[in-house]
Design a binder for these strands. Structure first.
Lengths: 205, 205
DNA sequence: CAATTGTTTGAATCTCAGCTCAAAGAACTG
DNA sequence: CAGTTCTTTGAGCTGAGATTCAAACAATTG
């Protein structure tokens, strides 16, 4: 028996399809997702889309996974490369990277779109849970480091505070991408920072 | 010219259709919404649904409006009938009425479903904005009354604090209805109360 | 190169749900 | 009651989009 008649670039193709699907979802929403749009965006035929993803849900789940991964990486990067590396700077970096920059922030928009499936699909719920957990982890670490260095005076356990900050971030983010005029990104950022200040007792945030 | 040949119960019918549509959305989600389901739930034919709502979007918007209204009334009621009428009891009532009681809480589920349209439909965005504003109002009033009575010592302006509490509530709520296992209703309630305690300086919350 | 297996295409087909519409029914008018 | 207008129905039409599939095409093997 031979190896593979036509190995090729399955991985690359899948990657391209995931990216194309993400783009399509961003543009027309989850309910407006059409195989044709994915195919067009990826520059292939409809048949090819089905060849790789006979079950469209699998593709959407991949998109979700990719969005979560990418988002987390970007936050991680922001966190690590925070100027000075001071606890305050790091925490500020987290806050800055966690809010949609505007109502049309596409990464946040995509994430909130996909999160909506969580109520009906265990796979998506798992991704959302994992994202939440990892974000809490980031914040908790930042808080603990700051406390250990004596810069922060935590008002409660780092874990609980982190929990709250992430939830707050999500709440504000939801309103921002939903075009709630009463929640402007700048204001949300201010309020989030105020909360961070309050729970850390650190004035220079 | 005569009055109305066949006046009847337009209002009642519309009401029934709105309620049926709400039920259908709750059961199968916004993307799974089918005229047939609405018709069945309302006990009429498909034609009737179109007769009253040639534009399905209008019906969905009505559902949203109704859900927002109903939700707000229930919170208002909870607020007003809070035992003792003490500021602390009132605030607690707000917190209790603002979180989904479980992942399957149907009113909250419906609201979050409909809020998702806000990103693409001004009408829905408006409803969401109005809901947010009114919730902030409720919290702000509760905080101000408590402050005026000397029971609360506000850590910032009542408005900003209320803003934050509502956003936090929404963040937790989102995770609860999304089946995020890390955010259980009981825990969310605890954390939300802790936050309320922190910003009011009132220990008996 | 012949054989084999993986990949791609797009036209044909299937499916489902929205929408149309003519006809029947019901409440009201005078 | 006859006339008028509002309401309701549901079978068929229509269209969009998913799915199928046979045929063409490409990389790899020996």
């Amino acid at each position: 028996m031979s190896k593979v008649g036509r190995p090729r670039n399955q991985t690359a193709r899948r990657q391209a399809l995931v990216s194309a699907a993400g783009q399509a979802i961003t543009e027309r929403g989850l309910e407006g997702l059409r195989i044709k749009d994915i195919a067009d965006a990826a520059g292939v035929s409809q048949g090819s889309v089905l060849y790789y993803y006979p079950e469209l849900d699998d593709l959407v789940l991949e998109v979700h996974r990719g969005a979560v991964e990418g988002y987390l990486e970007s936050r991680q990067r922001a966190y690590e490369s925070a100027a000075a590396g001071s606890p305050a700077a790091r925490l500020r970096a987290l806050v800055d990277s966690g809010l949609p920059s505007s109502a049309e922030d596409s990464l946040h928009g995509l994430l909130y779109q996909l999160h909506r499936r969580a109520g009906r699909s265990p796979g998506h719920a798992e991704l959302m849970t994992s994202l939440f957990g990892r974000e809490v982890g980031l914040y908790a670490t930042a808080l603990e480091v700051g406390a250990a260095m004596g810069v922060f005076t935590l008002a409660a356990s780092a874990r609980d505070l982190a929990h709250g900050l992430v939830a707050l971030e999500d709440g504000y983010g939801l309103h921002i991408v939903s075009h709630n005029a009463a929640v402007r990104p700048e204001r949300a950022r201010e309020l989030l920072l105020a909360q961070a200040r309050a729970v850390t007792g650190c004035p220079d945030l």
